[in-house]
C-alpha cells in the first residue's frame, strides 16, 4: 500500500444553520502524527465528525480528499471502507449486538462479498488485539459499549481501530476519562499501528497524552480554524501557559465559534 494522504482545504462547515468551521486547511500523510488542541467549543469535534460524514454537519465550501479521491461525496460507510477511522468522543451503545459480531460485520463490509474473513482467523485476531489492549475476554461477547465504563469505551474504540487498520485514524479525546494505566495502553495501541501506512490526527486537551503519542505537528484551533501550527514544543507551551498568550498575540477575545467573524 502506498503512503496515504488526507488533504483538507479551506473547509467551511455549518450545523443547524450555524457556521462552525470557518476555513480550515490541513494535510496528514501516512507516518505523521498531528495533534489538534484548543479550548472547548472551538470546533475540534466538528472537524472530526465532518471528516467522518455525520449527516448533521453541512459542508458549505472547501474540499477534503483522501489519496486524491473526493471524500465529501462519500457516505459515512464508504469513507470508513476507504480507510478513514474516527474514535469518537462519545461512542454509541448498541444493545443486543455483540462486540464480536459488530467487528466481524465491519471487517467483512470492508473486505466485500465473497472475501469474508474466516471465523477462526477473526477470533484469533480479535483475541490477540484484546490481550494486547489488556481487555478481558468477556468483552468480545458483550454488547457494543453497553454498560462499559468511560475508559472501557475508549479502549474499545482503539480495539476497533486495530482491527480495521485504517489509513487515517482520527482520535477525538481518546484520553478523556482515562486513568494513567489505561492511557498508556491506549497509546500503546496507537503506537503499535503507527507507520507509513497510517496517519494519525489526535484531538486532545492535554499534553499528557502527547508524552505517549509523540506528535510531529501540533495545531491550535480557535474560532473554527487553525490559528497556529508548530512542533511538540507548542503543546508544552500550552500546558505551561494556557491559551491567553496566543489569544493576545492574535487579538482574540472570544475563542469559541460563537463569535461573529
Amino acid at each position: 500500500m502506498s503512503q496515504p494522504k488526507l488533504t483538507i482545504e479551506d473547509l467551511q462547515v455549518s450545523v443547524e444553520g450555524k457556521k462552525i468551521l470557518k476555513g480550515l486547511s490541513l494535510e496528514i500523510k501516512g507516518g505523521e502524527v498531528h495533534a489538534i488542541m484548543g479550548p472547548n467549543g472551538t470546533g475540534k469535534s466538528t472537524l472530526a465528525s465532518t471528516l467522518m460524514g455525520h449527516p448533521k454537519y453541512k459542508v458549505e465550501s472547501g474540499s477534503v480528499t483522501l489519496n486524491g479521491e473526493n471524500v465529501l461525496e462519500m457516505a459515512t460507510d464508504e469513507r470508513a471502507r476507504k480507510g478513514i477511522f474516527l474514535a469518537m468522543q462519545y461512542p454509541s451503545e448498541i444493545s443486543g449486538v455483540t462486540n464480536a459480531d459488530f467487528l466481524r460485520s465491519a471487517i467483512n463490509a470492508r473486505r466485500g462479498e465473497g472475501n469474508e474473513i474466516s471465523l477462526i482467523k477473526f477470533v484469533r485476531e480479535m483475541e490477540k488485539k484484546m490481550s494486547f489492549l489488556e481487555m478481558k475476554e468477556s468483552f468480545a461477547q458483550r454488547y457494543v459499549n453497553e454498560g462499559f465504563s468511560g475508559g472501557e469505551k475508549k479502549r474499545n474504540e482503539i480495539l476497533q481501530m486495530m482491527m480495521l487498520k485504517p489509513q487515517i485514524a482520527i482520535l477525538d479525546e481518546i484520553d478523556s476519562g482515562l486513568d494513567i494505566d489505561a492511557l498508556k495502553v491506549v497509546a500503546k495501541g496507537v503506537n503499535e499501528m503507527k507507520g507509513p501506512e497510517m496517519g494519525v490526527l489526535v484531538i486532545t486537551h492535554y499534553q499528557r497524552l502527547l508524552n505517549y503519542i509523540k506528535p510531529d505537528y501540533v495545531h491550535i484551533m480557535m474560532q473554527g480554524r487553525i490559528v497556529r501550527s508548530g512542533g511538540p514544543e507548542l503543546a508544552e507551551k500550552l500546558e505551561a501557559e494556557g491559551y491567553d498568550w496566543i489569544k493576545e498575540e492574535l487579538g482574540i477575545e472570544d475563542e469559541t465559534v460563537s463569535q461573529r467573524s
Binding site: 467522518m52 460524514g53 455525520h54 449527516p55 457516505a75 459515512t76 460507510d77 469513507r79 470508513a80 471502507r81 477511522f85 474516527l86 469518537m88 461512542p91 454509541s92 448498541i94 449486538v97 459480531d101 459488530f102 467487528l103 460485520s105 465491519a106 463490509a109 470492508r110 476497533q160 480495521l164
Partner: peptide, 16 residues
C-alpha cells in the same frame, strides 16, 4: 452513524 463509521452499510446497520 456509529455503525456506518466502521464501514457497515446503512441497511446492514439498521438490521443489526
Amino acid at each position: 452513524y456509529y455503525l456506518m463509521s466502521r464501514g457497515i452499510p446503512k441497511d446492514e446497520a439498521e438490521r443489526l
